[in-house]
């Protein structure tokens, strides 16, 4: 029983800019988990893994052998669809999302994870800065998008810009 309010920085804006590093918060229209044995197959045209570069507004992030995260899709009902065999949950607010760019972007990310652009991975999930995150690229080869579980975004952001 102790008041530790002052020991922890209050959650701040997730925007940061310097000469060689820029971080901006991104608000995605929706984020939806879809699980099922065939989901990777069904969404294979929209599927994003590491180190893919996303160009579209709607895409599907490969997470596991039987799960993906639909970004920007219309929101179906959460629950289990018996016909398709798909389980769906709306997690639009479960992840906070930032875009990281600038000359130091990849270097800063490598402070938190053993990353290698030459080593593809079937999943965009990985552990970075001690947290299970989603990491891929958008638009250009030097702009990284990071989905971080909401409750730990403050910590990841602080480590990223320090």
């Amino acid at each position: 029983m102790r008041d530790d309010s002052a020991r922890w920085n209050a959650p701040s804006s997730l925007d940061y800019a310097s000469d060689d590093l820029s971080v901006i918060e991104v608000t995605l229209p929706s984020q939806i988990w879809v699980s099922g044995t065939d989901v990777l197959q069904i969404y294979k045209d929209k599927l994003v893994s590491w180190p893919d570069i996303v160009a579209a507004q709607n895409y599907a992030l490969a997470l596991r052998r039987d799960r993906l995260l639909l970004v920007g899709a219309a929101q179906p009902l959460s629950g289990f669809n018996i016909q398709q065999g798909h389980a769906t949950s709306d997690v639009s607010d479960a992840y906070k999302v930032i875009d990281i760019s600038g000359k130091r972007a990849f270097d800063r990310l490598r402070h938190g994870a053993e990353l290698n652009l030459d080593k593809p991975s079937a999943s965009v999930m990985r552990r970075a800065f001690g947290v299970d995150v989603l990491l891929y690229r958008v638009g250009t080869d030097a702009r990284f998008r990071l989905h971080v579980p909401r409750a730990l975004m403050q910590s990841v952001f602080q480590q990223l810009i320090s």
């Binding site: 596991r64 052998r65 994870a113 053993e114 080593k119 593809p120 991975s121 079937a122 999943s123 999930m125 990985r126 552990r127």
Partner: peptide, 8 residues
């Protein structure tokens, strides 16, 4: 990892 590949 059989799905993701090599990881730390």
């Amino acid at each position: 990892c059989p799905f993701c590949g090599e990881r730390n």
